[in-house]
Design a protein around this nucleic acid. Structure first.
Lengths: 135, 135
DNA sequence: TGTAGGTGCGTACCATGGTACGGAATCAAG
DNA sequence: CTTGATTCCGTACCATGGTACGCACCTACA
């Protein structure tokens, strides 16, 4: 399972072909040499397991809320073995996630309470609409 | 406190002047007639409390995770008094928030565990990097 | 009345994360 | 050896939510 085409790679990584190319442009995936090439220019690029792992890495990190730029940094660190920096980025991200979660939970319970109040009666101004006006 | 300029409105709403204009372009805020106008074209637009409330509404709804398009719908519903629809949008949003919160919590605890494992030793491959590769 | 700073408007640009298109070349199957 | 599907590459476009610029005009304050 060493030499797959870009579409196989994309499939293995759970993304589209265009997304693979996009990641290549962003420098997140490298672009292998073209093999074959009957003509003077042609040939196709072939991908291996390492590329699949890298693609999965990107997916995993994205799911953890890292941006593509941060993922780029993580990939560089992976090569450089700077675990201290990786840990720092991870704990930073945990803090950011905690903040975001708290924010969403606040919004969620406020909104749920409003929907409940709004459901009680149809008299007077809608509490949901009113609440937002107060900021 | 009835006739403020756009910058006062922006200040009262906690956004920038350009953002107010952006919301006007999006149809979220309306554009009052120009008053004064010594010349044939000129004059300045003046804003009142209703505009401030609307701006606050947008802020509040944004904090609850509504998109600007959804906010546009909420504003139309506000005018039309369709509370059933407002409730539907609100409960829909609560469900979406629940989903997002669960997702972030999963990412958070996975990442926190990884950071912990990674901190234990500097031997072998970094668990954080490894974990992402497994998807 | 002079002038600094605000306003109006159109338009362009930014970041983020992709998605789509067109045309030539190349590959795989019949 | 032909045909249909892929690949490659550049470039353009999409949604989202703004931010910035340029330039004429307008307004408040000393």
């Amino acid at each position: 399972m060493g030499k797959m085409t870009i579409s196989k790679l994309a499939q293995a990584g759970g993304v589209g072909v265009e997304t693979v190319r996009f990641y290549q442009r962003r420098g997140l995936l490298d672009v292998p040499e073209k093999t074959g090439g009957t003509g003077l220019i042609g040939g196709m690029r072939r991908y291996g397991e390492a590329d699949v792992r890298r693609l999965r890495f990107i997916r995993g990190a994205k799911a953890a809320g890292f941006t593509l730029d941060q993922i780029g940094e993580l990939l560089k660190l992976d090569a450089g073995d700077d675990r201290k920096r990786v840990r720092a980025l991870a704990t930073e991200r945990v803090a950011a996630l905690d903040e975001k979660i708290a924010e969403l939970q606040a919004a969620r319970s406020a909104l749920a309470a409003l929907a409940r109040d709004c459901a009680v009666s149809d008299e007077g101004p809608c509490p949901i609409v009113q609440a937002f006006e107060r900021g």
